[in-house]
C-alpha cells in the first residue's frame, strides 16, 4: 500500500491548481477512476497527516499517473514545491471508484477541485463507447482548468459563480437547461453541489464525497458519513464514491 513514486512533472495550471505527474510500478494497480492517493507532504514529523488527493489521469503504458490538487494550505503548499525527480511517499490506490458501465449517454458534473477525478472517468467511459456531456463549475475564470481536455471527450459546458466565463451561476444553472436525456450521472464537488445535482436530476447517478481524513484506510474513523439506512460509512474505504441516495448529504 505504501509506495515511493517519482515526480515526472509539476505545473500550475490555474490559480493555485497544480498538476503533478508521478511515475512508479504501482500505477499498474490503478484501474478504477475516482480512487485517491494519500500523500505525505514532508519526510519530517511537521505534517503528521497525509493529504488525500484524487487521481485525475492514469497512463499504464508509461506507469504514470496524474494528481491535480489545489495548493491552498500549508501541506499542499509543500507538495506544490516538489520538483521533477523528487520522491513522493504515498498510500495508493485507496477507496472505491466510479463504476465504469457501458452504454448510453451520461452527464458528468464537476465543481472546482472536484473536477480532476472526472477526467479519468470520462476517458474510460469514452473508451468503451459511452457518450459523455460535461458540466464543470468554477468560482471564476482564473480557476478554470481541463476545459479543453474534457471538450476532446464530449460536449463541455462551463459555469462560473461570478459570471466571468460561461454561464453565470452554478452547475445546476447549466444542467437545468439541458434538453438531452441522460441515462445516469457522475458527480464530484462540494457537498452542496452534490446535493443540488442529486435532487434536481431524476436519474440514477454516482457522487464522490470528501472529508478531512486521518489515516485514509479505515482505521481512525475521522471521515464518516451517514447512510440513508441509518448506518455509517467511511468515506476513505466505503467511498469516496457512493450511489445517489445512499448517503444523507
Amino acid at each position: 500500500m505504501k509506495n515511493i513514486m517519482t515526480v515526472v512533472s509539476q505545473e500550475e495550471i490555474a490559480d493555485k491548481i497544480y498538476e503533478m505527474v508521478l511515475e512508479g510500478e504501482i500505477t499498474q494497480n490503478m484501474t478504477t477512476p475516482g480512487q485517491f492517493v494519500h500523500v505525505r507532504v514532508s519526510g519530517s514529523t511537521e505534517n503528521v497527516l497525509r493529504r488525500p488527493i484524487s487521481i485525475s489521469d492514469i497512463n499504464q503504458d508509461k506507469s504514470q499517473f496524474t494528481i491535480t490538487y489545489r495548493a491552498d494550505g500549508e501541506g499542499t503548499g509543500k507538495l506544490s514545491r516538489f520538483k521533477p525527480g523528487d520522491a513522493v511517499d504515498l498510500l495508493s490506490p485507496l477507496g472505491s471508484g466510479y463504476p465504469v458501465e457501458p452504454g448510453g449517454h451520461v452527464l458528468i458534473v464537476g465543481g472546482g477541485i472536484g473536477v480532476p477525478p472526472l477526467y479519468e472517468l470520462s476517458k474510460q467511459l469514452n473508451a468503451i463507447g459511452v457518450k459523455t456531456t460535461h458540466v464543470l463549475g468554477f468560482n471564476s475564470s482564473k480557476d478554470i482548468f481541463y476545459e479543453e481536455k474534457f471538450r476532446a471527450l464530449g460536449e463541455t459546458l462551463i459555469a462560473t459563480a461570478d459570471g466571468s466565463y460561461g454561464t453565470e451561476g452554478f452547475v445546476t444553472d447549466v444542467t437545468r437547461h439541458l434538453t438531452d436525456s441522460f441515462d445516469r450521472f457522475y458527480a464530484c464537488g462540494p457537498k452542496v453541489m452534490l446535493k443540488a445535482v442529486s435532487d434536481e436530476l431524476d436519474i440514477d447517478g454516482y457522487i464522490s464525497l470528501e472529508e478531512r481524513m486521518g489515516c485514509g484506510f479505515g482505521v481512525c474513523y475521522a471521515c464518516v458519513c451517514q447512510r440513508a439506512d441509518g448506518t455509517q460509512a467511511k468515506i476513505c474505504t466505503d467511498g469516496p464514491v457512493f450511489r445517489k441516495g445512499e448517503i444523507i448529504l
Binding site: E46, V48, E211, G214, A222, C223, V224
Partner: peptide
C-alpha cells in the same frame, strides 16, 4: 465531522 485537523507536528 470534521473530526480531525492537523496542527504543527501533531
Amino acid at each position: 465531522t470534521p473530526r480531525v485537523a492537523e496542527t504543527a507536528s501533531g
